[in-house]
Design a protein around this nucleic acid. Structure first.
Lengths: 301, 301
DNA sequence: TCCGAACGTGAGACAAATTCATAATATTCA
DNA sequence: TGAATATTATGAATTTGTCTCACGTTCGGA
């Protein structure tokens, strides 16, 4: 069968108008055209769609079945049309975020909460554990924004700076390192390091300290969730290096001691990688603004 | 927007084939045609549907949205196609029944139970209380079969005889009429007559007895359900005239007395009114066969 | 940097949908 | 019932849209 949406629209119009001539007018075509179209459709389907004996053309049983489909399908098509129109005008869009930085969940969620209120037509999502590399996925339009702290020079991709943060060492007060004013790479040699289950190049502990100094911690334990990681730190089952916005949340709790990484502390910068074409979208600008202000509130909390 | 199913099919094919050329082959058209089509669609929608920078043509965010719609809509279209095909081959169909005869529910239900097992592709339904006249509705293809005991000469409509039944008088043993060997019209003059809430021309008590004799019962009480009517009879709140297949079900119960209507009893014939065109449908023949045999079982029960 | 594979473009061929004019058929009302 | 009216069907011409063919372009990998 060679059914097309045009046919569904016609069926609906004929039913609504209660006749072929009125329906044709409704659709800006001649009555003849509609008659031909219906005839063609009936030939194709091999089914009588209308009760031909009566004059103000009524749907047959099969026609009613077709009408039911039309009433189900056409609104969805129209909805998509409206969505595309909104897309053109920059009102709708998609914001699927890939995080290279595991702990970013903490500030991303509040951001997205705000964002959803302001841009309900934008489809938001976060993917924490990508099955693939995030930046190629960005180029392939599988995601629309990548949170990363390692800008690369990729054609068509912009790295928008978000905010600076400090990787901070955190351990139990019972840990010997709690006595030191700051930690250095060598301090980890006899420690269990708690990390997120991602490659070393994305972990501040390695990129800032261990890898340059060629120091290997005594053991590494991978933990999915920040809350669990903090629990393990509190019970002195390991130490961790976490962004400042995370450690601020436990400031003042007696179970934790925080120390700078190296004498002067380290500073890293987070970026939002987006496709060039999306940079001009108003909602993207809004999200980036949120992503620059929200985390700072957490850092100061 | 001028979206057509053709476009949805193309989107799906391109996604499945993972490329324009392979998709074109899949759809029996040239790669060029598909390219033109997609271009036209993008112009219409005003949205980029594909990520053009990469070579094996991948869907953009908007394209993925369109694909989602395609995957939802196309299977429904195909399902309808299959349904129509079955319709052409007489395997599928619709059997919406209108009952002019209220008590017919009793034997119709078992019939339909059997029928549904044998013809699962036929959409069955019963409408007990039509908002309109049943026979015009049959002609208008709003229903497909009318149970009636008054055949009319209508063009395009066939009245197939089903079976004969006897309207039977039923009352409580406490009712004085229980003493008579049979009842006549005049006996109702001081009785409360229980009837279904339909016009008199469709009630055997009137057509067979009261109307010809110009007798009016003392009172008429309309009752929807046969079971309730029987309860009222049992408690001597009224008398009724019901088809034999109904009164058989209470035979032998001490609360009821049944008597013939007039000295020799009355006999009526039930018909199934159908449209001529449906007469040749195999499932219609099967249903009529059932409608001739099932009720007889009830009458003999 | 070259080659091959995959996609885009334009003109003409072709098919399909539409229109115009008119015929055929229901419905209505006197 | 039959004329008047309203509604749908039909056929040929025309317009519109879609497809093909041939070639150009772009991209990705060796």
């Amino acid at each position: 069968m060679h059914l097309e949406l045009r046919h569904l629209r016609s069926i609906r119009a004929i039913h609504e108008a209660g006749g072929l001539a009125r329906a044709a007018e409704m659709m800006n075509m001649t009555q003849s055209a509609l008659s031909h179209q219906i005839k063609g459709l009936e030939d194709q389907a091999g089914v009588e769609l209308f009760a031909r004996r009566s004059k103000p053309l009524r749907l047959s049983a099969a026609g009613q079945r077709l009408l039911r489909l039309a009433l189900k399908v056409l609104p969805e098509i129209d909805a998509l049309g409206a969505e595309f129109r909104a897309l053109r005008e920059g009102k709708a869009g998609r914001l699927h975020i890939a995080m290279e930085c595991h702990a970013c969940f903490e500030w991303l969620m509040p951001c997205l909460e705000h964002f959803r209120g302001a841009w309900p037509q934008v489809d938001v999502d976060i993917r924490a554990r990508l099955a693939f590399e995030a930046l190629p996925a960005l180029v392939r339009e599988e995601v629309d924004l990548v949170i990363s702290s390692d800008p690369e020079d990729l054609p068509g991709v912009l790295f928008q700076p978000l905010f600076d943060y400090a990787p901070v060492f955190i351990c139990s007060p019972r840990n010997p390192l709690a006595q030191k004013p700051y930690v250095v790479a060598e301090d980890f040699a006899d420690q269990t390091l708690l990390t997120y289950p991602v490659e070393r190049t994305r972990l501040d502990a390695f990129t800032e300290l261990l890898t340059p100094a060629r120091v290997e911690p005594l053991a590494i334990r991978q933990v999915e969730l920040t809350a669990i990681m903090l629990m393990l730190v509190a019970s002195n089952r390991g130490v961790a290096v976490l962004p400042d916005w995370v450690v601020r949340s436990v400031r003042g709790q007696p179970d934790f001691v925080t120390r700078p990484v190296t004498e002067n502390g380290a500073t890293r910068r987070l970026y939002a990688a987006i496709r060039e074409e999306d940079a001009t979208q108003p909602w993207m600008a809004h999200f980036l603004r949120l992503a620059r202000t929200e985390p700072v509130k957490l850092q100061r909390a």
